[in-house]
Design a protein around this nucleic acid. Structure first.
Lengths: 226, 226
DNA sequence: TGGGTTTTGACAGTTTTTTGACATTGATTT
DNA sequence: AAATCAATGTCAAAAAACTGTCAAAACCCA
């Protein structure tokens, strides 16, 4: 397990090191710039981030990391500020947990463990699968230079399919994400899948939507033999 | 966003409901058994879990959920116990965050948001028995390189058999798991067993489904002498 | 109003599930 | 041992459920 600790207070750093060193591989950064650099260059399991830092503020660092890293490690913020406003600020910047000083090292450890066990977030402002790219921001799916706009529902469906890929996603799940508890009582979803398939095939992509009757729909790259 | 709140204190429940209702879709459970049932049956984004519950302890519920759910929603524990030992217990049971009462509703909300944004853990559970492997996630049974897809009912049956192995499972139990209180009135289960046996034997596996007229069906590895 | 979006409804084709008829098995009774 | 009976295996075929297809209607918004 690899942890990056961004903290300028040498005492705290030493305490953390003593306590965690036997179990984890630790990297340390003493200022914001260095911290961000390390965070982006390496693949950590968790990042422990103090908010009061020289060179670059922790909130700022957090935002920058979350928007730039393509595999985002969870961030545990560590700070003496404990008002609700501070916490809101921290979480809004993308923190995954927030611990106020003074804290017990054992608590730090169990929270690091809890953060590490979840899969990391893939940074995907633009999703893609095989040769296809889809930008959920403007609902445009494209292959190389050619592209097509999708309408809302189709966009949601394609996003769900791409997020799930290469796994299948059940039509119930898709339906729930689109309509919630009250889906239309006639097969509107079927029509959307049909239209989405037409659009994809008009792009001549190698991706296609397969149906697995026991699992649902899945986005798959067509193999050459068919 | 779908949140399950498992909390027996009606006041706290009402507070949470008032505060979160506009933004989230909330389900409530008033005791542990009901909570676990809902948690396993639905796909929530976050589960808020009080530790002191009637019928089933929160720690126990958490462990059961984490081991049984195949798509694990993050769990936020909510409790008056705030010693380090309590927290360790909670996180060890699989909690993802831990908030001690009394807490600010705004903090609850931001922590729920933080939990919801991470991807969920998939319980990769491939069952096997002898030379056979079965993946309930995609309903594919395989032996080495050859594999066959199963339909829903066959998949459920094979999963039950594999979970029970090497013990037998009665046809009443299987029937109840598939159809609940109202099974089809003609021996549909017999036909499914028949088809499942055909599929297994087509894989040339050494496993076969035996019938024990007093106990039910059991999956068994064929010994060489037959 | 007009144009895009979304839902509806009908039909066909496919897969899944159930039904029912008959055969077989194993235990129990006569 | 023979007769009986209930439980189970076998199989084809019917029924039900699901899915793809598509045109047309309903809806919504500028």
């Amino acid at each position: 397990m690899r942890v990056l600790v961004i903290e300028d207070n040498l005492d705290i750093q030493a305490n953390i090191a003593d306590f965690l060193e036997p179990d984890y591989v630790l990297d340390f950064a003493y200022n914001g710039d260095h911290g961000l650099e390390l965070a982006l260059a390496n693949d950590y399991d968790v990042i422990v981030l103090d908010l009061m830092l020289p060179r670059r503020d922790g909130i700022d660092l957090c935002k920058a990391y979350k928007s730039e890293a393509n595999l985002q490690a969870p961030i545990l913020m560590l700070t003496a500020r404990d008002t609700l406003e501070d916490k809101e600020l921290g979480f809004a910047a993308g923190a995954d947990d927030y611990l106020t000083k003074p804290f017990a090292l054992r608590e730090l450890k169990i929270r690091i463990d809890a953060l590490a066990k979840r899969p990391k977030i893939k940074n995907a402002s633009s999703l893609n699968c095989g040769d296809l790219a889809f930008d959920p921001a403007d609902n445009i799916v494209s292959l190389g230079s050619s592209s097509k706009p999708l309408n809302n529902k189709e966009g949601v469906i394609l996003r769900l399919l791409m997020e799930a890929a290469p796994n299948a996603i059940s039509s119930e799940t898709i339906s729930y994400r689109i309509w919630g508890e009250e889906p239309p009582n006639s097969g509107a979803l079927r029509t959307h899948m049909y239209n989405l398939r037409k659009i994809l095939s008009s792009l001549k992509t190698r991706c296609e939507i397969e149906t697995d009757r026991s699992r649902g729909y899945l986005l798959k790259e067509r193999s050459s033999d068919e």
